[in-house]
Amino acid sequence: MQLIAITLWMVMLTGCSTGNNSTTITNATDTVLLYKKDTALVAGINVTQTILHLPEEKKLEVTKKGRLLLVLDHPTVISAPEGVYEIYLTNLLNDIDKLTSSQQSFVSLLDLYSITAPGAKQQVEIDITQQVKNLQSTGGSATPLFAVLKFAPVKLADGTFSSNAGEIHFSGISVVQVNN
């Protein structure tokens, strides 16, 4: 199966603006832990790799009522893929080529449908709370963290796989701690 993996690079946030203006999902009690603004994070063409580095003092903590969200801003479908994009969280860079949806690092699928509704938020929010818990329970630390978007193509009638990964742009990505 042809797979195209795209990892999203998040910059280290130490005392700089956390980009609160980038997202509308937050309220006064939410915390944007990480934010990276990019002119175009392109899925489907470039394979870029980005590492989520949290400052020592800023752990990815999951409170009892809190949730951690991976937020992709302004997804724009330039051309539609013949397949889906799988989302993974892993702290092992070597695993990226071997990721499959049966593994615990599989989070969900990128939902590019709901954002087409009139008035819908132009963000894709993915709850990564369970995956962060998993990482912490297995390795102690959930960082560095690799958020991976991997193209999973349609299997064609002749048994081969589509190579059309499409092209999707995002204007920014963030990890947000939502306290509700």
Binding site: V84, T100, P153, K155, L156
Partner: peptide, 8 residues
């Protein structure tokens, strides 16, 4: 064309 949805 008769292709299958991705297994994921």
């Amino acid at each position: 064309g008769g292709g299958a949805l991705p297994a994921s």
